[in-house]
Computed example of a mutant assay.
Amino acid sequence: MFTDAHYGILPLLSATLIVSGIALLVAVPAGTVLAVYLSEYAPPKLREGLKPVLELLGGVPTVIYGYFALLFVTPMLQTFMPGLNGFNMLAPGLVMGVMILPYVVSVSEDAMRAVPDTLREGAYALGFSRFHTAIRVVIPGALSGITAAYILGMSRAVGETMVVAIAAGQNPNFTLDPTEGAATMTAYIVQVSLGDLPHGSIGYQTIFAVGLTLFLITLLFNIAGFWLRRRFREVY
């Protein structure tokens, strides 16, 4: 149909980063607060009961999250934003934030609990409250593990397929508006892989280019996490 087909990855890349950014805006603050609560404030029985519940969220099939974003979160957002499209990047971004929340909470809480109690006792001896001890002693002492949790959550969000394929649409659209629909890199791979493009064609080969780009992005995140972990371990 198109004799001179052109392909560009920028619309897919922008949509992937926007959706992942929305997910991190949900998961990072909420996950950090929950991790501080579980590590420093929660009674042992509550902690032992709440952590499995959070970890169960990570075991829910992603297709359920996708239909939850499409059939529940999007209509709910449309009541506050009447002009919101049926397929948009905002709803899957919010749902993905909830989906990666268990990873952020679990890894961050484990890192905080690994901080020696002697540091907490020293802070209490200096007159620190529990809140100031958590903010000024525990979090800096566990920053390498917390950073690893953020990187893990970001990598999980970037590589997510079903949520964005169902709720964000599969139409490549170069836009920075999260209320519009767009196709992410993983959604594009699914779309082309299930299509009728002939094997070996340029359109078919683009999925390998997109997959390689996705691999490089994830690799950069992991290298950044490794560098930050080493740096903060040297400091603390």
Rank of each mutant, 00 (worst) to 15 (best):
L46C: 02
Y37R: 06
F72E: 00
L54F: 15
G66Q: 07
L84P: 07
Y65C: 05
A27L: 09
L54D: 04
E55S: 01
G59M: 11
Y65R: 05
A42E: 05
N85K: 14
L13S: 03
L50R: 09
V26E: 11
E48A: 12
G83V: 07
L50H: 02
V26N: 13
T79C: 00
P29G: 12
T16C: 08
L77V: 05
E48Q: 09
P75G: 01
G8W: 13
L57V: 13
A27D: 10
P11I: 13
S39H: 10
V36M: 13
L12F: 11
L12H: 05
L54S: 01
Q78R: 14
G83E: 03
L24P: 11
L34E: 08
V63Q: 06
F68N: 00
S20A: 15
L54C: 02
K45A: 14
T79I: 05
P61E: 09
A69V: 00
T62E: 06
P11D: 07
Y65T: 02
V63R: 02
V53M: 14
T32E: 08
M81P: 01
S39R: 12
L57K: 03
V36Y: 00
L10N: 05
A30Y: 07
Y67E: 00
L50D: 02
G8M: 13
V53E: 03
G83S: 07
V33L: 15
I64N: 04
R47E: 14
P44G: 08
A69M: 03
Y65G: 06
I9Q: 04
L17D: 00
L25W: 09
V33M: 15
E48F: 04
Y67C: 00
Y37E: 13
L10D: 07
L46H: 12
G58R: 01
T62S: 15
I9C: 01
L84E: 07
E55A: 02
T32P: 06
V26I: 15
L34C: 09
Y67G: 00
F72K: 00
V63E: 02
I22P: 11
L38R: 10
L56F: 15
F72S: 00
L38E: 02
A27C: 09
I22A: 12
S39D: 09
G21P: 10
T79A: 10
E48C: 01
A42S: 03
A69C: 08
L77P: 04
G49I: 07
L24M: 14
T74Y: 01
G83P: 06
A23V: 01
L13W: 14
G83K: 11
P61W: 06
F68H: 00
K51F: 02
R47Q: 06
E48S: 01
T62R: 05
A35C: 06
I9A: 10
M81W: 15
K45G: 13
P44F: 08
L50P: 03
L57E: 03
L70E: 01
L54E: 06
L25N: 08
L24W: 06
L77Q: 06
N85Y: 12
L77M: 05
L13Q: 06
V26M: 08
L34T: 14
P52Q: 11
K45W: 13
R47V: 06
I64C: 02
A42L: 09
V73Q: 04
P61C: 12
S39I: 11
Q78P: 01
A23W: 10
V36P: 07
G59S: 05
